[in-house]
Design a protein around this nucleic acid. Structure first.
Lengths: 334, 334
DNA sequence: AATCATGGTGGAATCGTTTCCATGAACGGT
DNA sequence: ACCGTTCATGGAAACGATTCCACCATGATT
């Protein structure tokens, strides 16, 4: 099938071919000092034999692995896919390989994947953390160079996050400006930051901050749908909902359609994360755009540049008005 | 910031702690023969010290790296994201790390990424190949264990692909059944298989097989939009178009909307690849669903099971009728 | 002219694991 | 009672790179 695996050529063979010692070859190839003549001989031999240094040997000796690990809850979610794309894009320009793991927002799976990464001697990791910060203590003690993306669960770990506070404030203000008073937040678990920002925003505008106005779903599509349907069904008094992510938003329009709740006439919808289909949707969705790709790119920069790193970088979000929000109707729905 | 990287503990220390030799520890941990007493001592010591064997050392010795490489054109594209998810899911059950690279459908970038992977001594690779099959010769000669996914560009490499022929045949037959005669195919470059199947399907139904009826785009969103707009503008006689992927489909509805071409009244649209938003779209899109996740999962199985492998596995597609196709109108548009 | 600095060079140690091989003990068969 | 087989065991060699260190030749300084 595949041809007979030809043996890999080693630094020793290059040294022989060039008529020098292995140390010299290593030095030339990693930019150390050598005479012009020797350098040329070595380079020629290496090129002729198509020599590629083994990362295994190098890393074993160096006690550190080049590559970087990336842990996301769900690569299928457009937001995390774009975040991953950003990481990949930055890593490529450094020639560093990226090992990706899917946590499913499950701390246990996450711990397992971290274990695998440590076995590989990976020392750099970008993660969208799923649990709380405590479970990261062992990984940090193991010397892992961690950067959090999208969520910040420890203050002692550099993080790259969207400006959630400003984002929800913008959303709430926009909806309040349209006359809405009963605004609900439909979010994932472990979005405590956003929820706090949400209730704060409600309070600052003098709107009712009923605890039932925030509904949580797990990160599966089914769970999101159930949460959205439950909210729409049991709270006919809410006239606007903020969906905390694109799968939540999707679930909300699906549930609304199923329950014959019209958007935006019956309820206004605003979704976190701008995705290509938001414009295609009926109606086109008003969104809080998040710079997913940038988050990934910046996180990769942080983890690759070893220099002293700022504790947190916050990236701005942006309100994109389309057609899923309208003025509040006078009477409650149905 | 992060605590002082505590030194990793090695097999030697476990051996000392257990009062045995390193060889014995290695044997116990990899399931070799040992007396019950020794085994227990070793296991206890390993657990107590929280020992994790270094994959670096193991791989260097074993001359093969456990992990698997994955090369996709665009992780942002829902299809490839789902494919990657399948690979990741299978790999996780084997405890194998996956290194992901994004080729952008560019053979040069692809070659570069393959080089990086080879440097890591990766010997297993799942790829959605971007170029033709020839450029894979060096990688195969290097002993890489390759499985192609989604596209098959060499017959001597195991591949997992959707049943493109049946898929386009189903689509064409469905459209022809609605009375359409001028059907266009909007595809990516390097989809020669599908194009061939498309023209064959047209021919078998006695429909005109104008060469201009197939339009190609590169894999960027802009290029897709340009191709879709061009097709819609310059060929008012086509009454149905098949989009060869979800970004092409997205571009088609966007372009149609912009050009005030109504779907499905003016032109019918059928899209390859069922994505969550197809149902949310206005109108909901009729699609040929592809088992993206399965493709990835099966490819991973193939590359992980070292046994003799079937040359190609073809996975069925499925027509999902929604609302983007209608009967042909008597007169050509405008 | 003898010594010292300089800079290129190669041998050898090292990283952490697996695996080959030799050793020694226990044991059963003749 | 002796020998051959089996089995657990540990020492040591490999894997492929980096890097410390010793070495030597050359040129400069006293």
């Amino acid at each position: 099938m595949n041809g007979p695996a030809q043996r890999r050529i080693t630094i020793k063979e290059v040294a022989e071919a060039a008529g020098v010692g292995v140390a010299t070859v290593s030095r030339v190839l990693s930019g150390g000092s050598a005479s012009a003549e020797t350098r040329e001989k070595v380079l020629a031999a290496a090129a002729r034999l198509d020599y590629r240094p083994s990362a295994l040997g190098r890393n074993l000796r160096r006690q550190r692995t080049g590559g970087i690990g990336l842990l996301v809850p769900d690569i299928t979610d457009s937001f995390y896919a774009r975040l991953a794309d950003g990481v990949l894009s930055c890593a490529r320009s450094y020639g560093e390989p990226v090992t990706v793991g899917v946590t499913g927002d499950d701390p246990e799976r996450e711990a397992e994947l971290i274990g695998t990464l440590i076995e590989q001697s990976m020392d750099r990791l970008i993660a969208v953390p799923s649990g709380d910060g405590d479970m990261w203590a062992p990984a940090l003690r193991a010397g892992l160079n961690v950067v959090f993306a999208d969520r910040r669960v420890r203050t002692d770990v550099p993080s790259v996050v969207p400006d959630d506070r400003a984002g929800v404030l913008t959303a709430v203000e926009y909806l309040a400006g349209l006359g809405h008073r009963k605004i609900a937040y439909l979010g994932r678990h472990a979005q405590s930051q956003r929820v706090a920002a949400f209730t704060a925003a409600l309070a600052s505008l003098g709107l009712p901050a009923d605890r039932d106005l925030v509904v949580h779903a797990r990160s599966s599509r089914d769970s999101a749908y159930a949460a959205a349907a439950g909210l729409l069904q049991h709270r006919p008094d809410v006239t606007a909902v903020i969906a905390g992510g694109n799968v939540l938003g999707e679930a909300a329009v699906l549930a609304a359609r199923e329950l014959d709740v019209r958007i935006p006439r019956d309820v206004s919808l605003i979704m976190f994360d701008d995705v290509p289909w938001a414009e295609l949707c009926s109606p086109p969705l008003t969104v809080i755009a998040q710079p997913a790709q940038d988050i990934g790119y910046r996180a990769a920069e942080l983890v690759l540049r070893q220099g002293r790193r700022p504790p947190t970088v916050t990236l701005p979000t942006q309100l994109v008005v389309r057609a899923s929000c309208g003025p509040r109707v006078a009477s409650p729905r149905r």
